[in-house]
Simulated assay, not measured.
Amino acid sequence: MRRTYRRPGRTGSNRKIVIGLVVAAVVGGGIAVGTGLSNASSVCDGMDQAIRNNQEFIATQRANPNSQTEAIVANRQAVIDLINVQKKQAGCSGAVAAPPAQQATTKPPAQQATKPPAQATKPPAQATTPPANNGGGAAGQVVCPGSTVTLSGEGGAPAASSGTFPIGTTLRVRNLDNNKSITVKVASTSGSCILLNNAAFEEVREPGKFLIRRAVIERVG
């Protein structure tokens, strides 16, 4: 009778090792993919927020038009178009819905003045001095606490736009996530506390991010 001898080995152990390596490779790949998707999502979210900021500003301008409304709206629409191009290059999908149209703010109708009776005596007028408007805070004070900072999409030298502070105001923005800061002047109007143009935002942002969630905004002299 012919006997067949089984060659000794560790077939079961080898199979376990191979399966373990495959699982580790799949898990490792999943972590890498997950991290990449997280970074991509942050980039797309930041650009979407920049588009919303500009859309809200356009809606406000159209609801309360003036002699410069058309030029301002055209400029902001050009910024939105540029950000959409950047979104496409970054692989971001989905369009940002335009905000609902705002109603124009109207002044209440003037009330008809009634002539007081002849015997009524008019009280002496008291001079009142309205408090000075300092644009949201004195020099050296932190303003717009809790506000996120994103980009306006505008080019040129480092500058900012704001709907809270008048043109010419100097603001310092510090990114608490990397401790980088920049001091800029408000050069245009927007619908947010502060938006940084491309050059200014590049100085303080974290690589690959288009939104600063933890920022300190300070008005300087």
Rank of each mutant, 00 (worst) to 15 (best):
Arg7Ile: 11
Ser13Met: 12
Lys16Pro: 03
Val18Glu: 06
Thr35Ala: 13
Ala40Phe: 04
Gly46Asp: 02
Asp48Cys: 03
Arg52Ala: 07
Asn53Trp: 00
Asn54Leu: 15
Ala59Met: 07
Asn64Val: 06
Gln68His: 10
Thr69Asn: 06
Glu70Leu: 06
Gln77Ile: 03
Ile80Arg: 11
Leu82His: 11
Asn84Lys: 15
Lys87Thr: 04
Lys87Cys: 03
Ser93Cys: 02
Ser93His: 10
Gly94Asp: 09
Ala97Val: 13
Gln102Asn: 09
Lys107Ala: 13
Gln111Cys: 04
Pro117Leu: 12
Ala118Thr: 12
Ala120Ser: 08
Lys122Gly: 05
Ala125Asp: 08
Ala127Leu: 13
Thr128Lys: 10
Pro131Gly: 05
Pro131Trp: 03
Asn134Pro: 11
Gly137Asn: 05
Gly137Trp: 00
Gly140Asn: 05
Gly146Met: 09
Ser147Glu: 14
Ser152Tyr: 03
Pro158Thr: 05
Pro158Ser: 08
Ala159Thr: 08
Ser161Leu: 04
Pro166Asn: 09
Gly168Phe: 09
Gly168Ser: 08
Asp177Gln: 12
Asn178Asp: 03
Asn178Ser: 10
Asn178Phe: 11
Lys180Ser: 05
Val186Asn: 05
Thr189Lys: 12
Ser190Asn: 00
Gly191Ala: 09
Ser192Ala: 15
Cys193Pro: 04
Ile194Tyr: 03
Leu196Gln: 03
Leu196Trp: 02
Asn198Ala: 12
Ala199Gly: 04
Phe201Tyr: 11
Val204Tyr: 01
Glu206Pro: 01
Ile212Leu: 05
Glu218Ala: 12
Val220Asp: 02
